[in-house]
């Protein structure tokens, strides 16, 4: 069996080399891919451009293929414009919510997205990255580096646990997306490698056990709104980590715990649409309606 990756190992390496986690990751990954650092960064920037476009698509207020979601990103946009002083969470997080919904809705309506780490969870990273970069005035380079940090975190989670709802529940999809985004946020705000690890650990702990229960088997309900929730979790964890708060359980152990929870999860709660919200009376009603449409 392939040896499992360890986030602690990478963090320690970065700390001993006195590098930011982003600088370490870009060097390490470029070597791994036998790719020039600049080219790697450019590829990441291409991904960021696709993400930006997904936000634009989402904010046109499209409706999804299954008809269960759409237009909510736009609603938040309008709310923000009309009543900034009424925002419960403040401008930055409200923007993150808007972006998460917009990209989730773009995905559900056959828009072009970056699966990061998956299509279902594709709203989380753009939400955190773009809302924070606007607030901080980050450059494209800094964002690209943050995205590489997110990717490195995702690789470790994939190696020790899973990134797919079918294998590990939504904790593995939206949970992992949030953990990746939290690490990226810490990087963007100049946090240490150690703090990146803490943010990942805290996020995953807060999303442990989340089940995958898509209504009618479609990537619509609860997926789109969960991306907004995941983005918020990422920001909450990044804030704690930057303040110097540590996770009592070390990050690799939290990832392993997530794997164990995923394995223990009933199959009905892993993308099969046989449990959770998918079998709520309304969930069943909607599924029957959609299937009847298919039959006819």
């Amino acid at each position: 069996m392939e040896e499992k990756l360890s986030l602690k190992e990478w963090i320690d390496l970065a700390e001993t080399k006195n590098k930011s986690f982003g600088d370490f990751c870009i060097e390490f990954q470029a070597k791994e891919l036998e790719m020039d650092k600049k080219v790697l960064l450019e590829r990441m920037e291409e991904m960021l451009h696709v993400m930006e476009q997904s936000v634009v698509i989402g904010l046109t207020g499209i409706t999804s293929m299954g008809g269960l979601v759409g237009g909510n990103g736009k609603k938040v946009e309008t709310y923000r414009a009309d009543s900034a002083e009424k925002s419960v969470v403040g401008g930055v997080m409200s923007k993150a919510i808007m972006i998460a919904l917009a990209v989730g809705e773009a995905n559900a309506s056959m828009g072009r997205i970056v699966a990061a780490p998956t299509a279902g969870a594709s709203g989380t990273l753009p939400a955190v990255l773009f809302s924070l970069s606007e607030a901080r005035g980050s450059s494209m380079d800094e964002l690209g580096k943050a995205l590489i940090v997110a990717g490195a975190i995702g690789m470790v989670i994939a190696s020790r646990a899973s990134l797919s709802g079918a294998a590990g529940g939504c904790q593995a999809e939206c949970g992992s997306a949030a953990a990746m985004a939290a690490g990226a946020a810490v990087e963007l705000y100049g946090g240490s490698p150690e703090q990146v690890g803490q943010a990942v650990a805290i996020t995953l702990k807060n999303m442990l056990g989340l089940v995958c229960d898509p209504v009618a088997g479609l990537v619509e309900v609860p997926c789109v709104k969960r991306n907004a929730g995941a983005a918020a979790q990422a920001m909450v964890a990044a804030e704690m980590a930057l303040a110097g708060i540590c996770s009592v359980i070390p990050v690799d152990e939290v990832i392993d715990a997530m794997a164990a929870v995923g394995n223990a999860m009933s199959c009905t709660l892993k993308e099969t649409a046989q449990g959770g919200l998918a079998v709520s009376p309304t969930g069943i009603l909607l599924a029957n309606k959609l299937f009847a449409k298919v039959e006819s």
């Binding site: 791994e32 891919l33 995905n107 997205i113 970056v114 699966a115 299509a119 279902g120 990717g151 690789m155």
Partner: peptide, 21 residues
């Protein structure tokens, strides 16, 4: 698995198995 399996692929949604596949 490399980093582009995690950040990417770029695809048309909504589902990697039901759409991209």
């Amino acid at each position: 698995m490399n980093i582009f399996d995690v950040i990417g692929p770029v695809m048309i949604g909504p589902s990697s198995s039901h759409t991209a596949g």
